[in-house]
Every structure is written in C-alpha cells, then in structure tokens.
C-alpha cells in the first residue's frame, strides 16, 4: 500500500482506480477459486440435511423436551408396534411400582397423557402416541427401554423441526445421539 501510494502520488484519481482494479481482480479470483473449491465439497445425495436421534445411543436425559428452540419440542416419542410386546404392565405406560393397573393419574408415566392404549385381545394392548400432546420428555422411553422391548423411542419429527443450522438439542445431548442425516434416512426407525 505504501509503495503504490508513493508511486502514484501525483495522480490520486488514477491511483484510486488502479487500486480498485487490483481489488476487483483479487476479489473475482477469490470468488471463483472458493466457489470451485467448495463446489467439490457438495454432494446432493449425501449432504447432511436433517437432524435425527439415534435411539441406540439415546439415554433419555430429558433435554429434548427443554432445549429445543421451538416452544414445544420437535422431538416426539414414536412407537414401533412390531417391536412392542403389547404388555398389560407396560413400563412406558405405567410408572414403576404401580399398585393397580388403571389409568389413575398416580399410576401413569406420561405427564401429558399422550400415550393411549386400546385393548386388542387377552392379554394384549396396543399403544399409540398422541403426538399433539407429546412433549418429548422421554419418560416413557426410559421406562420402555429399561423394562420392555424398547419399542417406544424418541425421534425428531421432520415435519415439525425447523431444521436449525445447528441443533440446540444436539449441543446439550449427553450421549451425542443427535447427528445430521441425509434425505434418505430422515428417520432412524426401529422395526
């Protein structure tokens, strides 16, 4: 800068234009080079778009409920019927140590009553999650994983998730269970 200034000291207008031109060339070159370099890093198919929870890693710490940027978390409990044992005494439906198997508040695990169950045949019950009520607290998931088949598990519902550039829950997840996934594996389902 010093040198150029001294060289063109007598003609400030031309000096300015010369600098301008140099700058333009450098900037244009940078844009092209960076664009080309970065373009090699993109892969349409494999690019990591969505956030998702790996149920195998999840330890149900309860932060999904509290740390999502949305007023009500985009994490919901989902239920794999094919894994479920359809038990009457369900570790996700009832609190542990229940005395009677009825729907009284003191026996229920879910704080919002989002788990509904339907009698199928003796002794089987079908469980379904009412997503509108689910807060993603993971209490039932903990119960089901510790006492049952693990058919209840947490997933980020992609239709609710706002797809933050960086997931706030992933930041605080104690078991590093949340990672980016590509288009094809938007959900990590249990079968």
């Amino acid at each position: 800068m010093e040198e150029k200034k001294n060289k063109n000291i007598n003609n400030p207008i031309r000096r300015k234009e010369f600098l301008q031109m140099c700058g333009s060339v450098i900037a244009g070159g940078t844009v092209l080079a960076a664009g080309a370099k970065l373009a090699t890093k993109t892969k349409v198919k494999e690019s990591d778009v969505f956030w998702q929870i790996d149920p195998a890693r999840c330890t149900q710490c309860g932060r999904c409920e509290t740390d999502c940027v949305l007023p009500v978390s985009a994490v919901k409990c989902i239920h794999a019927n094919r894994v479920c044992g359809y038990c009457d005494l369900c570790g996700g439906y009832y609190r542990s140590n229940v005395k009677e198997l009825n729907t009284a508040a003191e026996n229920m695990m879910c704080p919002t009553g989002a788990i509904e169950r339907k009698f199928i045949e003796d002794p089987y019950f079908e469980y379904t999650i009412n997503e509108d009520l689910c807060t993603g607290c993971g209490k039932c998931v903990k119960g089901c994983t510790s006492f049952g088949n693990g058919s209840l598990y947490l997933q980020i519902k992609q239709d609710i998730c706002v797809n933050c550039n960086e997931c706030q829950i992933a930041q605080v997840c104690v078991s590093d269970a949340i990672s980016r996934v590509d288009y094809a594996t938007a959900y990590k389902l249990k079968e």
Binding site: R95, K99, A104, A105, E106, T112
Partner: peptide, 21 residues
C-alpha cells in the same frame, strides 16, 4: 408408592395432575 392404598392421597394427585395439565 410407599404408602399404598391411601385414597385421599390418590385423589389429591389426580386433582393436581389435572390442574397441571
């Protein structure tokens, strides 16, 4: 859980649960 069949306690829980929700 500790005291078992205490109906007033249970009633209290149910009321409170309803309120909370």
């Amino acid at each position: 859980e500790t005291y078992g069949d205490n109906t007033t306690l249970q009633e209290q829980i149910r009321q409170l649960d309803l309120l909370a929700r």
